[in-house]
Simulated assay, not measured.
Amino acid sequence: MNKSQVLPTKDSFGYLTDGREVNRYTFCNLNGVTVRIIDLGCVITDIRVPDKEGVVHDINLGYDSVQGYEKNPLSLGAICGRVVNVISNGKFSVDGQEYHVTKNFGNHSIHGGKKSFTHQLWSSSVEGDKVIMKYVSPDGEEGFPGELTTIVSYQLTNENELKIEYSATTTKPTPVNLTNHAYFNLAGHNYPNLDDHVLQILANKYTPTKESDIYIPSGEICDVTGTLFDLREPVRLGDRLSEVPRGKGYFNNFCVTDADGSMRLIARLDHPPSGRRLDVYTTELGVQCYTGGDTIDHTQGKEGAVYEKFCSICLETQHYPDSVNQKSFPNTILRPGEQYTSKTVYRFGLLEQ
């Protein structure tokens, strides 16, 4: 055993309504960082990190019990798939054949449909210092073609890096776009707002949304210069969220500059009062910034917390939203014989004193 490794432990998190057991895995590193994951939805349930005074808080929104995650309408901490984000009008075409997927977001599909990866019990095991989770999505599930086998691994290091690796293979051509949907508040999951958080996204382009529907991309890829989407320099969120877009905060994809599949720093989130910092690295082409606007409204969370509008931020590394319906966006179709791969690292730290 490598003594520098952070080895996960396993216990029971409880039972689903159908009697199946949900396993929980806990990582604790040498710096007082603790991460917990369950195999229901591959959910990250806890991220406990010290502040500048050494006081530890959970900075990850979630629920107290299996029952909360069994419903999990906001996909708190979950792996979303087969296709994260939106598929407009719940349909797409591959090789001339049209497919209709479950509409669970008005007239659209989001995060894979009603019975998405978020709501599946994955098989799970410990392999060295990683937790490995696997789910085989049958052909036709939620309307998607092909049997898709997906493997996700989690690893915590003593450098305070939470590493997430994804791979997938398919039996038929199908869209694949995966992410983890953790909601962060660096002041603590139960803190009521993001006002004192400072956000930086190192992207010079973004994908604007339609005037008629702020959740659906217009198909354009635009320069951020001179817009409210220019976050290349740090911006205090309390000064920005009420302005964009239309007072609902950010629900936008930012394009990783010069993305080539290598690991890149795409986003940095600071909270000066606590001294906490989150850096996001990814091999992906984009990051969806979601600041919990009108879809989070008085949600009962863990430890008695009630989650409200603008109380958290998601930085979801992924391909562009609605790519299957946008000819100008990068391809998200996985074909038999190919392998989908993606890596993301959340690094937790402190601001320099």
Rank of each mutant, 00 (worst) to 15 (best):
T118V: 09
T207A: 11
V198R: 05
H197A: 07
L202E: 05
I151G: 07
T207H: 03
I201H: 04
H111L: 10
N89H: 14
L162H: 08
N107V: 14
Q97I: 15
Y191K: 13
L186N: 04
C222S: 15
H189N: 12
Y135C: 14
Q155A: 08
S218Y: 00
G140V: 09
L156F: 07
I221A: 00
C222E: 14
P208Y: 03
Y99M: 11
V176N: 01
F184G: 06
L199T: 02
P138I: 08
V198M: 00
T150R: 12
I221S: 00
F92W: 08
P138G: 06
H197E: 03
F184M: 01
V152I: 02
H189Y: 09
Y183C: 03
H181F: 01
L162G: 04
Y183D: 05
T174V: 09
E165N: 14
S212R: 07
T169Q: 14
H189R: 11
G128W: 05
L148T: 13
P208I: 05
L199K: 06
A203D: 01
H189P: 04
V86C: 08
L121P: 02
I214Y: 10
Q155N: 09
D195W: 13
K163L: 15
H119A: 13
D129L: 03
F92H: 06
N204A: 13
